[in-house]
Design a protein around this nucleic acid. Sequence first.
DNA 1: ATTCTACTTGTACAAATGTACAATGAAGGA
DNA 2: TCCTTCATTGTACATTTGTACAAGTAGAAT
Lengths: 124, 124
Amino acid sequence: MKHHNLPATSPAETEILRLIWQLKRATVQEVCHQLPAARKIAYATVQTLLRRLEKKGYLKHDLEGKAHVFYPSVEQDHVIRRSVGDFLDRLFGGDPRPLMQFLAEDGRLEAKDLDQLRKLIENT
Amino acid sequence: MKHHNLPATSPAETEILRLIWQLKRATVQEVCHQLPAARKIAYATVQTLLRRLEKKGYLKHDLEGKAHVFYPSVEQDHVIRRSVGDFLDRLFGGDPRPLMQFLAEDGRLEAKDLDQLRKLIENT
DNA sequence: ATTCTACTTGTACAAATGTACAATGAAGGA
DNA sequence: TCCTTCATTGTACATTTGTACAAGTAGAAT
């Protein structure tokens, strides 16, 4: 897998793409089941999003029986890198520090996460 | 300024909104000048984006001579909180840790930033 | 063989996005 | 006063996004 320059994913597409990463390979159904309960969205819609992701180059699929089994065709890391980069540019002018700070202060992180982060920072 | 639930900003809008936060108050021109050189985008386009941001409730404006002077009408912090939240949900299923880790490893942070972050984490 | 299923493919369609031109109007300079 | 200069407002328009139905089809069940 190499670094191609794919068109950006829309928010809804991103959400689906994440589920594919999580599942490694998945049919439309499986993706649907993986959707958080709060996020009700029709089978057909998921299908469209998967189709679009494939068209954009983020996914490929195999045929397994009659169903398409989708899987990533670009490294998650590459996509994340770009997404985070874009996000930083847009919202913070590219400076990662305010985001870091925001996350650190946000309280979403548990004590043990902070510990881990400390360790991570230590040997960086 | 209170927490209203405004429609999300598009990426291009977000970029402009950031500049307004940076400048506190600004005319279309000033926003244009603040745009990174790489990002060439017509005056008229910036105008449209500012108009849309105002319509969505993110900005207000005063009249100063013939020009509109735009300024934020919601707290930056609130907007950022929501944006980051959405971003985390979409790309990381809401878990801030992978993003933290990504940022920490990314090398975009200088040594002194890491120091600061350490301190920040220390007293959290 | 017929019907039921689970899928895919084609298509739809309103709203949002990215981008920008044209017309209009007031303010300042010649 | 008349022209030039900015700015605003109205409008435009192709594309992308979010969401989804309908028709077609192959395999499973009866």
